[in-house]
Design a protein around this nucleic acid. Structure first.
Lengths: 226, 226
DNA sequence: CGACACCATATTGTATACAATGTACAGGTC
DNA sequence: GACCTGTACATTGTATACAATATGGTGTCG
């Protein structure tokens, strides 16, 4: 509904289902560790279990649900440990993708960062967190596209969604979190547009590391160490 | 058959199918861009299309097959571009996992590297590339286990398999490639056992970078730039 | 009273039937 | 002769029926 739709206009049922469930999970309407039965999901969306199974496989791939053979499927638990895992990986991979994006020669695509940044500012000004996150994710995907590294995009796609769960939770508790990253994000976009790969990489790593550290205690209090 | 079996003794059909197909792809019995129809695979292994579909989803997750909606499924093409993608990601993530493994306090598990190293030497002495790769992969999974980072393991699982395709191909062309990494691998194992995370990380990054560079031209000649 | 075994039920796993769609080839038209 | 169109076929996508298994409760035996 939100993330994958940016990538392609696919109309396949499993992908659409997955997108909708993703959004439910990211924005907390499906809570951590809540159980999902195939039949329930199928009934709810008016389809059979076949496409539901495939959708759940996709969510499993992206770490949003956890499956135990013949036992069932649950929304993946959140914990400080999981949060740390996601963020240590993100530091490395987001840094790499920022560098590769900066090294791209696609001037026109790079220019899109300008409008994205103003959209981010608007969303921030209106305190519209949901819109902020949506635009932020579009920025991530633009970076991925520029980097032109399908493998890296595939890996980051999953991490991004897991990370967003934590970020949205943090926002709910303290809305000013979305202000934290705006200035740095702008500087990173500038470095990418300027073709300064090393700088984009370093700033991205720092930004993610900072967000990680600033959120860490709150995550532990909310979900435990894990 | 080879890789996943190390992780668990699962007997689920889709996982087993995926393992067997993985091995076929890694060792080149299923060639790059060869088409796979669900019915074909199902008939070959004597099961219905349902578990085959799930197995193919798993392979898709790990980048070994490429799916186009309603068009079909192919063994993922190999190319220098794809090779570069896999290796730039591996440098970051394998470095990270080596560091986190070194920081583990699980002495007993760490000791397993000793026997692994001697197994590697044996395989090398006998010029048994297949065995060498199998043991090497076990070393990777031991490292992943020590790191105790499920997210990172999930990400690397896929990359590892893609990388192994290229490594086995390179071996077929020039068997001495398996000697390249043995000494460095030993030093990395030592650093992990000694708890020297930064050193393990640096050496791992260097090793993978070296392997990458040394294989790059051969990959291009064999599969094109992509 | 506790523990173990057994059975009922809920849920996932697999097989199969049917639907939708993309591809290739044949035929016709300009 | 080239290009477009329509139809047959191959293949994936979805629905449904059935099988296997894990869970929870109940009853019985020690």
């Amino acid at each position: 509904m939100l993330l994958a739709r940016i990538q392609k206009l696919s109309v396949a049922i499993p992908e659409n289902l997955a997108e909708m469930l993703e959004e439910e999970i990211i924005f907390g309407r499906l809570k951590s560790q809540e159980r999902l039965t195939e039949e329930m999901v199928a009934a709810r969306y008016g389809v059979s279990r076949s496409p539901v199974r495939e959708a759940l496989r996709l969510l499993e791939r992206d770490g949003l649900v956890t499956r135990e053979a013949r036992r069932g499927i649950w929304v993946s638990p959140m914990s400080q440990r999981d949060f740390d895992e996601v963020y240590t990986c993100r530091i490395e991979l987001e840094g790499l993708v920022a560098k590769q994006a900066a090294e791209s020669a696609d001037i026109e695509k790079k220019a899109e960062f300008k409008s994205l940044l103003s959209e981010l500012k608007q969303a921030q000004a209106r305190n519209d967190a949901r819109q902020f996150f949506i635009v932020d994710v579009r920025g991530s995907f633009l970076t991925y596209t520029l980097a032109g590294n399908k493998t890296l995009t595939r890996l980051l796609g999953g991490l991004e969604k897991q990370a967003l769960r934590y970020r949205y939770h943090a926002y709910e508790q303290d809305p000013k979190i979305i202000q934290l990253s705006l200035d740095d994000t702008g500087r990173i976009y500038d470095a990418i547009m300027a073709g300064d790969g090393e700088s984009a990489k370093a700033m991205t790593e720092n930004l993610i590391r900072e967000i990680w550290q600033s959120m860490r205690a709150g995550i532990r209090d909310a979900f435990g160490e894990g």
